[in-house]
């Protein structure tokens, strides 16, 4: 792959990454949200691979493959199984409705670009121009955690958040050391497993997975 082509691939992947994040806020069907997460994971893997091609780091290909398997395959698969077990496919009444959510998402993307300007201007690598995309995904993920009720939406929000963090790490510093990446991925896997168990338990206890039913957490 030539330098110019890899930059174009990188830009395209970043665009898909951001769109998938915003799309996850737009769709109410949880299966569609999980599908968008898989797309975002795949885009992240492409970002890593394109960076590897651009900066001639062959080990980034291995990282890209690992990221792709985990974030586009394993984690969405686990979420799908949890979805099948819970039997609720719609985020019926979100705390913030879809239209407002999209407006907020637009504002958050603007904020991310405004804040990350000095970082984007750093003449480090091709990736640093696209850095605000990762930050935007972090903010959108956090917003999803706040604005959606179902436990599976929380899982999705958390995954958006973590995808964003990983994207920032890739774009700013061409990835963290392999050992750290493996550790983070392992943590992520555990978190999703725990949330999945939680979803199933909530379903059997309350008949719904609305997180606002958990109100005991105060002094």
């Amino acid at each position: 792959m030539s330098g110019a082509a890899s930059v174009q691939v990188l830009d395209f992947a970043c665009g898909v990454f951001l769109l998938a994040g915003v799309g996850a806020l737009w769709r109410r069907a949880l299966s569609a949200v999980i599908g968008l997460l898989a797309v975002q994971g795949a885009a992240l893997a492409v970002v890593a691979a394109a960076l590897g091609a651009d900066e001639h780091h062959p080990e980034l290909y291995a990282v890209a493959a690992g990221v792709g398997v985990l974030r586009a395959g394993v984690l969405p698969g686990l979420a799908r199984r949890a979805l099948a077990a819970s039997g609720e496919d719609r985020e019926s009444e979100p705390l913030v409705n879809v239209a407002s959510s999209l407006l907020v998402a637009a504002a958050l993307v603007l904020l991310a670009y405004a804040v990350a300007q000095p970082l984007a201007r750093l003449e480090g690598s091709q990736g640093s121009r696209a850095l605000p995309v990762g930050l935007a995904s972090v903010l959108i993920g956090l917003f999803m955690l706040v604005a959606r009720r179902k436990a599976l939406s929380q899982v999705a929000g958390f995954l958006l958040l973590d995808n964003g963090i990983t994207a920032v790490a890739f774009l700013a510093a061409a990835g963290v050391p392999l050992l750290v990446e493996i550790g983070v991925s392992f943590d992520l896997l555990l978190v999703v497993l725990v949330l999945r168990v939680l979803t199933v338990r909530m379903q059997s206890a309350f008949g719904t997975t609305d997180l606002d039913d958990l109100r005991e957490l105060h002094d």
């Binding site: 705390l95 958050l108 904020l111 405004a114 804040v115 903010l139 956090l142 917003f143 955690l145 706040v146 009720r149 997180l211 606002d212 958990l214 109100r215 005991e216 957490l217 105060h218 002094d219």
Partner: peptide, 24 residues
């Protein structure tokens, strides 16, 4: 602190956003 997870998440989210807006 009324026990709602969403409210706790909202605190974290809004403080982060306020901080970023201030920074920008």
């Amino acid at each position: 602190a009324n026990g709602s997870v969403h409210r706790y998440l909202g605190y974290a989210f809004s403080s982060l956003v306020i901080l970023l807006v201030a920074l920008a």
